[in-house]
């Protein structure tokens, strides 16, 4: 795991880290961010900075008077034990998936309910809020995901194996942030099958007719 971490070279972008810290990203993006940070100490440290900025922004705001009995009410809340209790933080997962992803899959790689979407590629859509979608993708070694462009933002985090597209190679832990300008054909490297976590806030645009028809049925 440590060796893998050292190889991460494609990190989260500034707007993504800031949005995650501010709590303004769609849940699907938050899942990719939290999963990447679980694998990447560089971005973990960067996130701490964006959290710190949030704290200072909060301090700098004009205070708003709280209810007269607010302190007493809060102490009563504590007495009653109704407030959020401290759960132990999620420990490092022994399997392939970091803890936040395991929560959404309800297990590890062997618990994924794959559905074939054509061209040898399989997916499992994970349930999140509707403003964006996130799925696990299984791309057999040496297989290409059909050439596609993007209407919105697409985040692709590699969990296992690697893929190569027109821009670079993406290995375990790397995250590719694609937007409208990128048209690409990711190809899974020979050797190990590639498992990715991919989130998008708009449907992908496939550039040939067949995948476009398939798109209707598979929900990409």
């Amino acid at each position: 795991m440590m060796n893998e971490m050292k190889q991460i070279k494609h990190h989260l972008t500034e707007p993504l880290l800031m949005g995650y810290a501010a709590g303004t990203l769609p849940e699907a993006f938050n899942l990719v961010v939290a999963t990447h940070i679980s694998m990447c100490d560089t971005c973990r440290a960067a996130l701490a900075e964006y959290d710190a900025i949030g704290g200072e922004v909060m301090l700098g705001g004009d205070p708003v008077e709280v209810a007269e009995d607010a302190l007493a009410a809060t102490l009563a809340l504590i007495e009653k034990g109704d407030a959020e209790q401290a759960l132990p933080p999620a420990p490092r997962a022994p399997g392939l998936f970091p803890a936040p992803l395991r929560d959404y899959v309800n297990g590890d790689i062997n618990d994924v309910k794959w559905r074939k979407i054509g061209g040898g590629v399989s997916q499992m859509i994970l349930k999140t809020s509707k403003d964006a979608s996130v799925r696990l993708l299984h791309i057999p070694a040496g297989t290409a995901v059909p050439d596609h462009g993007h209407r919105g933002t697409e985040l692709t985090l590699v969990l296992q194996g690697a893929f190569v597209d027109e821009t670079d190679r993406f290995g375990a832990g790397d995250v590719e942030v694609a937007n409208e300008e990128l048209n690409h054909t990711p190809v899974a490297e020979a050797g190990m099958d590639c498992i990715c976590l991919a989130a998008t806030d708009a449907p992908l645009k496939f550039n040939s007719l067949m995948p476009r028809i398939a798109q209707k049925f598979v929900g990409i």
Partner: peptide
């Protein structure tokens, strides 16, 4: 926002 908040796992 009525959403879940996925959090990174703890450091090993």
């Amino acid at each position: 926002r009525k959403q879940r908040r996925p959090e990174p796992e703890d450091l090993p």
